[in-house]
Design a binder for these strands. Sequence first.
DNA 1: CGCGCACTTGACATGCGTCAAATTACGTGG
DNA 2: CCACGTAATTTGACGCATGTCAAGTGCGCG
Lengths: 216, 216
Amino acid sequence: MKTFKVSEITLNVGQSVYLEGETSDKLYTILEGWAFRYKSMPDGRRQIVNYAYQGDFLGLQNSMTDKSPHGVEALTILRLCVFQKARLPSLFEKQPSLALDLTWLAAREERFLDEGLLSVGRRTAREKVSYLLWYLHTRALEAGLTFDNTLFLPMNQQHFADTLGISLVYVNRTLQRLRSSGCLTLTGRTLVIHDKTRLAELAGIDPKRPERRPII
Amino acid sequence: MKTFKVSEITLNVGQSVYLEGETSDKLYTILEGWAFRYKSMPDGRRQIVNYAYQGDFLGLQNSMTDKSPHGVEALTILRLCVFQKARLPSLFEKQPSLALDLTWLAAREERFLDEGLLSVGRRTAREKVSYLLWYLHTRALEAGLTFDNTLFLPMNQQHFADTLGISLVYVNRTLQRLRSSGCLTLTGRTLVIHDKTRLAELAGIDPKRPERRPII
DNA sequence: CGCGCACTTGACATGCGTCAAATTACGTGG
DNA sequence: CCACGTAATTTGACGCATGTCAAGTGCGCG
């Protein structure tokens, strides 16, 4: 294990863990803070692909020699643990349970991405915004980042727009309408969920197929 | 290895490997044929999340006890190899290279999903359809399923629509316009790419950031 | 020969995008 | 603590890409 860990680094808001198109032979775990993964088009259109926080791995999708197909940027101050990806094979040999953990994490990320695709592809704007807030709240719960249904969100409306595939202006209008529905408050960066069941309804989440409960 | 493999099964077009909401303690590899993974909303809206063919794993995202968050359906006759997921830990111990392979496959799937999110979230209808055809052709190349730029596509326009998050009617109109651009022919289920570079342009794929070349 | 399903096409409706400007919040230096 | 500059949020007016509805058309299969 001592040869696997390389170092610990800290990034500031807006700094990149790695850029789209950059090659990196590193792996990262988040010790503290929020980041987002994104992809973009030649003309600058951007799609945020997922958010990540403590315990999440970054860089697993990158080969060691090719350019990264996505970028990762810090949303808050971000403390990272850095590993050499080349050490992975020997690590898997010495500690097979680590391989299982990584498989589990990858599977979890895939489930998130699948949900994201459903959102972006098939939900209406109202459902999209509802779902995103529901999702962030649910993940924050899982990570112990909420206090009494209140939650600090490090992203702004532009991030929402780029996550959901709608325009900034329409995110704003949709948020207004959600606020007036009464089931949540979002002032500045503070989100309070008053009625999560209602929010799930607005998001078009199937009540008969509940999300998996937080693992631990 | 002999204790890992359970059996081999064959499905017909339209049959399900597993349904959304079903619990399954199995893992599958595709030996032959095409399938698609999908998720849906309570009211029936459907999002196809990815396509899979020979060599791809299915069921990795499912826990052994919870309901599957997505379904998988056969697009062609589908031959599958079935494994017991519970055997994975001991397998990883005996054969750490398998863990690496699975990690690689999971990373590959994540890259596909990221691309899908970019498509659905940020591309226009024309770019979406172009990208999907480009993507299917590229993957088919990688798998040795094309012959002289000609490729059999097992999916219909409804599948395209559900993949791209647009309506069936608009997929059709967009295909018409793509055909008249001259860079492809799509008659029935046969796709011929005449000018792949042009197709990539229409899809808004960054020329400076080429997709990773087929591995092997 | 006829039924069913995939594909087409036209007419019309609308959810969301775009442009532009106003307003508010926020950090920074004086 | 205030003044200022910059970024984030909000609102209005208008346009368009895409959706919806509905009616064909073509074709494979029994």
